[in-house]
């Protein structure tokens, strides 16, 4: 009797896993997040236009990063009709992209542009983003064609708005 019970539980668990996989396959068909090496990504950290860029480095496993995302989303909405662009750069592990990153974006209804930086030799590129960056996240780079400031910290909506308005 006990053995039959174990088998039934096992079948349910396996079935559960298949069901989740199918759902996330369907969802990931609809959400495509490009992955870049740093070399491919680097040109996005420069601009010759009049646009102000806010580039946030985060990951689904980084709790302070997740806590500040609503602030970034709200700012993105507020400034979207101005010369403004926001990039949310995920540093999630490559093997977590389908399992964690894409479901996260869907479940949190993220509207800002998300891209995935897939370059594990971080020592080679951390200082190319900013010479003083220790590598910890969250971190945010704000830049225009004339000015560039890097922040190794979390932001509230008010703090971020202040930076943008006074940039």
């Amino acid at each position: 009797m006990k053995r039959i019970l174990h088998i039934i539980v096992l079948i349910n668990l396996i079935g559960c896993d298949f069901k989740n996989k199918k759902v996330s396959d369907e969802l990931s068909d609809k959400v495509d997040i490009p992955s870049y090496t740093f070399q491919e990504f680097a040109p996005m950290l420069q601009t010759k236009s009049d646009t102000l860029f806010v580039v946030n480095f985060w990951a689904t496993w980084c709790e302070p990063c997740i806590e500040e995302l609503p602030a970034f989303e709200a700012i993105n909405q507020e400034y979207k009709n101005q010369k403004f662009k926001m990039l949310l750069v995920s540093l999630d592990f490559n093997k977590q992209k389908e399992k964690k990153l894409i479901p996260f974006i869907i479940n949190h209804h993220l509207k800002a542009k998300v891209l995935h930086l897939n370059d594990p030799d971080a020592n080679a590129w951390i200082e190319k983003v900013d010479a003083n960056w220790s590598g910890s996240i969250p971190a945010t780079l704000v830049f225009t064609k004339n000015k560039r400031v890097f922040f190794e910290q979390s932001f509230t909506k008010e703090q971020l708005k202040n930076i943008i308005d006074n940039f």
Partner: peptide
């Protein structure tokens, strides 16, 4: 060297 990691 530098590395990405979780903040303390």
């Amino acid at each position: 060297t530098k590395a990405i990691g979780c903040s303390i």
